[in-house]
Simulated scan of single mutants.
Amino acid sequence: MAEIQIEVDVPAQMRDGTVLRADVYRPGGTGPWPVLLSRLPHGKQTPMMTVMLDPPTAVRAGGAACL
């Protein structure tokens, strides 16, 4: 997989009205792809996040990743 598409701060509204934002990494082209989702209470820019889930590696393996 050569192409990685990245969408930053994609909103998702929860039932209580709270809006969570995620960065979505996915292969180019059409899906469907399996998705790996990682959420931490400290924010998606936390350096520890990429230790737990490396988005480019997930995409190269044929999946999508959301942080």
Rank of each mutant, 00 (worst) to 15 (best):
residue 3 E to A: 09
residue 7 E to C: 00
residue 7 E to G: 03
residue 8 V to D: 02
residue 9 D to G: 01
residue 10 V to R: 14
residue 10 V to A: 11
residue 10 V to L: 13
residue 11 P to E: 02
residue 14 M to W: 04
residue 16 D to I: 04
residue 16 D to W: 04
residue 20 L to H: 09
residue 20 L to V: 05
residue 20 L to R: 11
residue 21 R to D: 01
residue 23 D to C: 04
residue 24 V to C: 02
residue 24 V to A: 05
residue 26 R to P: 05
residue 28 G to W: 02
residue 28 G to D: 03
residue 30 T to F: 06
residue 30 T to E: 15
residue 30 T to N: 13
residue 31 G to P: 10
residue 32 P to R: 00
residue 34 P to Y: 06
residue 35 V to P: 00
residue 35 V to R: 06
residue 35 V to H: 05
residue 35 V to S: 05
residue 36 L to V: 13
residue 36 L to Y: 02
residue 37 L to R: 05
residue 37 L to V: 12
residue 37 L to Q: 01
residue 38 S to C: 07
residue 39 R to D: 05
residue 40 L to E: 15
residue 41 P to H: 08
residue 41 P to K: 09
residue 43 G to H: 03
residue 44 K to V: 07
residue 44 K to E: 15
residue 44 K to R: 15
residue 44 K to G: 15
residue 46 T to M: 13
residue 46 T to W: 15
residue 46 T to V: 10
residue 47 P to E: 01
residue 50 T to M: 07
residue 50 T to P: 04
residue 51 V to Q: 13
residue 52 M to W: 14
residue 52 M to A: 14
residue 53 L to V: 14
residue 53 L to R: 12
residue 55 P to K: 10
residue 55 P to E: 02
residue 56 P to C: 00
residue 62 G to K: 12
residue 62 G to V: 10
residue 63 G to P: 00
residue 64 A to Y: 07
residue 64 A to N: 02
residue 64 A to Q: 07
residue 66 C to Q: 10
residue 66 C to N: 06
residue 66 C to G: 12
residue 67 L to M: 15
